[in-house]
Design a protein around this nucleic acid. Structure first.
Length: 433
RNA sequence: GGAGGGGUUCCCGAGUGGUCAAAGGGACCAGACUGUAAAUCUGAUGGCUUAGCCUUCGAAGGUUCGAAUCCUUCCCCCUCCA
C-alpha cells in the first residue's frame, strides 16, 4: 500500500465485485489510473454523529483505490451538511445547528480514520469543506462559481426534477444550491491536491458530474467521475436496517456484537454480493469459499466469514473475539454452562443490561428494557411463549424476578424471540463488576 | 376564483347511527419447521391494575340513550374547469 507501484486492473476488479455503477470515461479513467498514482475523493455529509453501513461501500472503495497505489481524500461535509443534499430525498430536510454538525464532523473523522492508511507515499488525507466555504462571500460565490452553472441544466437533474414534479413538495433555494457546493469541493480539491476523481454512491452521480464539469471549465483540468451502486437485497427489503433501526459504524450506537450479528444474518441470496462488496478477500478466494458453502449451507461458512471480516476491519480483533464469544454463549443453547465471568463479560461486551436493587416484575422488565413495546404487548408475548428466562420459557406474566433462582445468584438472561437478549443484574453487583 | 372527491389504527384500504379497538391486504412481532437462512403454516398487533376498564377514526364544537358514521365551523390533500 505504501509502495510507489500502481497495480493495474482496478476498474476490472471493481466491476467483478459489482462495485461499478457509472463511470464518466472508462477508457480514459483506466489509462489515467494505470499511468500513475492519482488522488481521488469521496464526500461524507454529517447527518448524524456516526456513519452507517451504507457509507461503508464508498469508504471501502476508497480503501481499494489506496491499496492500488492511489491517494484517497476523505472529505467531511462540514459545510454541505449544513445545507442538505436533495438527492434521493422526496422532502425538504430540516436544518441542523452549526455547532451540532461541527460535533458530528469530529466524531465521523475519528470513525473513518481507521479505515484508510495514513502512512506512506499515498497516505490518506482528511479535509472538511467548511474550510473553504465558511469565509466565502456571496458575491464571490455567485461570480466565481455560479457563473459556470446553467439553471436550465440544474433543473434537469433527477434530484431537482423529482421535487419540482411533486405536487406536495417543493425544493428550497438552499437545497437547490447544494450541487454548487459539492462541485466547488471537487474544484477546490483539484487545485489543492491534484484530485482527479470523485467517487460516491450512484445517487451522487448528478452532483459528481457537476463537479467534474466545474473542474474542466474553471481549471481546464482532467477530471473523472465514478459511482458505486446502492446496495440492494435479493428480497427487496432495504439494506442496512434491522428491527432496532439502522446499523451504525460507531460502537456506541451499534455494538460490535450487534454488528457481527447483522452480517451473520445475511441471506444466502445476498452472500456472494456482500462478500465481494464488503470484504477484501480476493475474488478467487470468495469463489472457493462459496463452493464450500454451497455444499453445506447449514454451516453458514460464508456468513461467518463475512461477519468476521467486516467486524474485524471496523472494530478490531478484540471486538470480533468478544462478538464471537457472545454469539457462542447465546446460541449454543446451553445458558446454564455460562460461568459468572462469562456473564460479566457479556455485560462488558455491550449486551443491553438493566440493573435493579432487589426484585422486578417480568412485565415491567420487558417493557422497560425495550424487549416489548408495552406491558400489554409483553403480556401477549409471554402468552405466546416468546419469552425465555435463563433459557426456560416463561409462562407466568406476573412473575417476580427476585434473584432467588438467578444465574450465579445475580443474573437473569432474558430472551425475546430468537435473537433479542437482555441481561438483568442485581445492582450492587453491577457496580462491582 | 368555479365544480366535484377525499382525510380511518405503522402503510394501503373497507366501514355511513349501536353487534367497531374498527373487515381485508401489506408490514412488523411471536410460535412451528429450519441453518440465528429462505419458503410455508399458526397466532398476535391502541393503552392499562386485562373475563373488565380507558383512549382512538384530520381539528374543535353540536345532535343523540348511543357517533368513525348525522349537523356546524375550521385545517389539509386530490381531480376537473378558469
Amino acid at each position: 500500500m505504501t509502495g510507489a507501484g500502481v497495480n493495474n486492473g482496478l476498474i476490472d476488479e471493481l466491476r467483478d465485485r459489482g462495485l461499478l455503477a457509472q463511470v464518466s470515461d472508462e477508457a480514459g479513467l483506466t489509462d489515467h489510473l494505470e499511468s500513475g498514482s492519482r488522488t481521488l475523493y469521496c464526500g461524507f455529509d454529517p447527518t448524524a454523529d456516526s456513519l452507517h453501513i451504507g457509507n461503508l461501500v464508498p469508504l471501502l472503495t476508497l480503501r481499494r483505490f489506496q491499496q492500488h497505489g492511489h491517494r484517497p481524500i476523505l472529505l467531511l461535509g462540514g459545510a454541505t451538511g449544513l445545507i442538505g443534499d436533495p438527492s434521493g430525498r422526496t422532502d425538504e430536510r430540516s436544518l441542523n445547528q452549526a455547532e451540532v454538525v461541527a460535533g458530528w464532523v469530529e466524531k465521523i473523522r475519528r470513525q473513518v480514520e481507521g479505515l484508510v492508511s495514513f502512512e506512506g507515499n499515498n497516505a490518506a488525507i482528511i479535509e472538511n469543506n467548511l474550510e473553504w466555504t465558511a469565509e466565502m462571500d456571496v458575491i464571490s460565490f455567485l461570480r466565481d462559481i455560479g457563473k459556470y452553472f446553467s439553471v436550465n441544466a440544474m433543473i434537469q437533474r433527477d434530484s431537482v426534477r423529482d421535487r419540482l414534479d411533486r405536487d406536495d413538495q417543493g425544493i428550497s433555494y438552499t437545497e437547490f444550491s447544494y450541487m454548487l457546493l459539492q462541485a466547488m469541493d471537487y474544484a477546490e480539491l483539484a487545485a489543492r491536491h491534484h484530485c482527479t476523481l470523485q467517487i460516491g454512491g450512484s445517487d451522487q452521480w448528478g452532483n459528481i458530474v457537476s463537479g467534474m464539469d466545474l473542474v474542466r471549465r474553471k481549471h481546464g483540468g482532467e477530471a473523472y467521475a465514478l459511482t458505486v451502486p446502492l446496495i440492494t437485497k435479493a428480497d427487496g427489503t432495504k439494506f442496512g436496517k434491522t428491527a432496532s433501526g439502522a446499523v451504525w459504524l460507531s460502537a456506541e450506537r451499534t455494538s460490535p456484537y450487534s454488528f457481527y450479528q447483522f452480517w451473520l444474518n445475511t441471506a444466502d441470496a445476498d452472500i456472494e454480493h456482500f462478500l465481494k462488496v464488503f470484504t477484501f478477500l480476493p475474488v478467487t478466494e470468495i469463489d472457493a469459499l462459496l463452493t464450500q458453502f454451497r455444499e453445506a449451507p447449514g454451516e453458514r461458512l460464508a456468513q461467518k466469514t463475512l461477519a468476521a471480516e467486516v467486524t474485524r476491519m471496523l472494530h478490531g480483533e478484540d471486538a470480533l473475539d468478544s462478538a464471537c464469544r457472545i454469539t457462542d454463549a447465546l446460541f449454543s443453547g446451553d445458558i446454564g454452562s455460562l460461568t459468572e465471568a462469562d456473564l460479566v463479560q457479556l455485560m462488558q461486551d455491550g449486551m443491553d443490561t438493566t440493573a435493579v436493587d432487589a426484585s422486578v416484575g417480568l412485565l415491567t422488565l420487558l417493557a422497560d428494557s425495550g424487549l416489548a413495546p408495552s406491558r400489554g404487548q409483553a403480556r401477549k408475548l409471554v402468552a405466546s411463549g416468546g419469552v425465555r428466562i435463563n433459557g426456560v420459557v416463561a409462562e407466568d406474566p406476573e412473575r417476580e424476578l427476585d434473584f432467588s433462582d438467578a444465574l450465579h445468584g445475580r443474573f437473569y438472561l432474558v430472551r425475546r424471540g430468537k435473537k433479542n437478549w437482555h441481561l438483568l443484574v442485581r445492582k450492587s453487583d453491577a457496580q462491582k463488576a
